[in-house]
Design a binder for these strands. Structure first.
Lengths: 337, 337
DNA sequence: GCCGCATATGATATCGATATCTTGATATCG
DNA sequence: CGATATCAAGATATCGATATCATATGCGGC
């Protein structure tokens, strides 16, 4: 080690302060502050003069100082949870589209978005935020509980809690999604439906429950085919296994579009006709589904809107307004399968 | 209006301060500060005692105060650019996978990620960051120029600048991607290649240039088919138009996997064999490509890694270390098309 | 001509943490 | 034994912005 490296002597980007501007303009710094925040307490002319001055000199507000004084950060932390098992992060299109809505809404409300991956639980930067948005609840809600303890305004994306949550939950109404698929199958006279997915995911479990319950009302009990991967291959594989076990089925509800597409491919290979012999409905309405041959029927959830909702709810919480959990309606998109 | 709503009397989450802890422990606050930052200036025993105390009382560092004092924010702003024309934001899987790598790398270096959509150019929160990562350069580099003026450490994702950039650029080596496709076509004896894409995007332009240049070395001039949308339909449409214009072609380089898949579908419909009659190569290596029938050949770019690189470079810039622009190699993935 | 009131501006204290400079106590050495 | 390190901890100033209280000026009414 040649040099002390840890203690930098305080970085210094030059940057004017309000005090500097004040000196330049021959007024007090408080007047600058007021002028720049459009306070009616300062004369219109002075105000404009000072604003012009600030602009000319490229003045930049020191956010830390303001936040310190005002005891708030105008920041919402978004915590992206790791996926339960696989080491991969949740950086799939799915939670990320939420981010779009979140960012849009918060930014236009004058808030900043602090993006974090869950790591050091007690990350200081998270605690300094005014609110929290949690994407992905973690295995058995552990993440939720962890952050809940911070006592900050918090909104969680995911499946509805099993009653009495202390925090707000926003999510797609997975149960209703499952119901709508069941209704569709019933309406076209299917009697032997199969569910492909992984009920270990709370969301998928809800879909399954809705599906099962609705069918039960009509005396039908679907077959549950558990599949951990949501890949096309997994869908292919699922159908093949059904076939080799000589299961009779005439409808498939797949928990993702990829699974559904795989299923269809396998069906076609087996010489079965979609949807004549077997009807298939996927989930998510991924862009490709519509272009698939045949065009895929699916359940659509609006991520973008979900993000906006999440953002609005944290903001409401932050401003101490009453807020309720909310499930967003899903849409059954009937195409050709 | 019933009440003054704008001026809240200073929000107050209780929260201990170092001063409080100091009083509790009977030491001075500076000692607390030192103890909590593991300074060797304080006795090991006292240090541990104080740390324990802080933990017990759930002390939380006030980040704003520290940032103010230290004149840094330990924050990097990531600015997600709007797509040039379409009103849609860049919230597609593409830039978002970059985010994954960025977030991972910055977080583990102790930095926070501030996510912003480009909006008010001079967003205060951006200026308070220690560095900038720009995803998407905007129409004709306007975004880049805008942020460049801030004079902050900045790294841009995208096509290599046309010489003499003042900022660092990290990107996929699109030119090389184009070249590798050309080489492949040449090696399997194709003489009439077509390029489908939109050269208005700097990235795609690079792909085209590489493609064209490499082919030119062998006396071949590809046909350029301009398509603005990167959808499957657009690919279908492109091939149909080729066919109706009775163009002779035996290879297609499509600028996105979706385009490629559309092209293949259209070819099959027209009774042409892939790859016997026409070879097709896409771009991006989207998950579906591998499962497509036939499995799609494509050019892969590693987004995750790109994000990591971006993050490392800003950090280096922030620490005043020498940094250079870098193009990441692409991989030609040859499957069946 | 004095009081009251509105308007415009200033002085000061403060938010919470840390750099820097001091001070006090103990240890080391010639 | 006195001089000088070494270690531990405190006092103070400071980062930049803003809330709060105080001050100056103008103007109309009685």
């Amino acid at each position: 080690m040649t040099h002390a490296k840890k203690k930098q002597p305080l970085a210094q980007r030059p940057g004017l302060t309000m005090a500097d501007l004040a000196k330049l303009a021959g007024v007090s710094k408080i007047t600058i502050s007021r002028a720049l925040s459009d306070s009616p307490l300062v004369n219109v002319e002075t105000r404009e003069r000072l604003q012009e001055l600030a602009r000319k000199h490229g003045y930049k507000l020191n956010v830390s100082a303001r936040n310190l004084r005002l005891r708030r950060s105008h920041t919402v932390a978004v915590i992206v949870e790791m996926k339960p098992s696989s080491g991969r992060t949740m950086w799939d299109p799915y939670p990320l589209s939420l981010l779009g809505g979140i960012s849009q809404e918060l930014t236009s409300a004058g808030y900043s978005v602090l993006l974090t991956t869950r790591q050091g639980a007690a990350d200081a930067s998270v605690q300094s935020a005014d609110g929290l948005i949690l994407l992905g609840q973690g295995v058995r809600q552990d993440a939720v509980r962890l952050y809940d303890k911070l006592g900050m305004p918090m909104v969680v994306w995911g499946a509805a809690g099993q009653g009495g949550d202390s925090h707000i939950v926003v999510g797609s109404d997975n149960r209703q999604g499952g119901i709508s698929v069941a209704e569709r199958f019933l309406s076209i006279g299917r009697r032997n439906p199969v569910f492909i997915g992984n009920p270990d995911h709370p969301e998928m479990a809800q879909r399954l429950f809705g599906f099962v319950d609705e069918l039960a009302d009509h005396g039908i009990k679907p077959l549950l085919l558990r599949r951990a991967d949501f890949t096309l291959e997994s869908g292919v594989d699922a159908v093949r296994s059904l076939h080799s076990r000589k299961v009779r089925f005439d409808a498939i509800f797949a928990c993702s579009d990829l699974l559904a597409m795989g299923a269809i491919r396998a069906l076609v290979e087996l010489g079965l006709s979609v949807p004549n012999d077997v009807s298939v409905i996927g989930y998510d309405d991924t862009p490709l589904g519509a272009s698939f041959l045949p065009p895929l029927s699916t359940v659509r959830q609006n991520w973008q809107e979900g993000g906006v909702l999440l953002a609005r709810k944290v903001l409401a919480l932050i401003h101490s307004q009453p807020v309720q959990s909310q499930m967003m309606a899903t849409t059954l998109v009937v195409r050709s399968t």
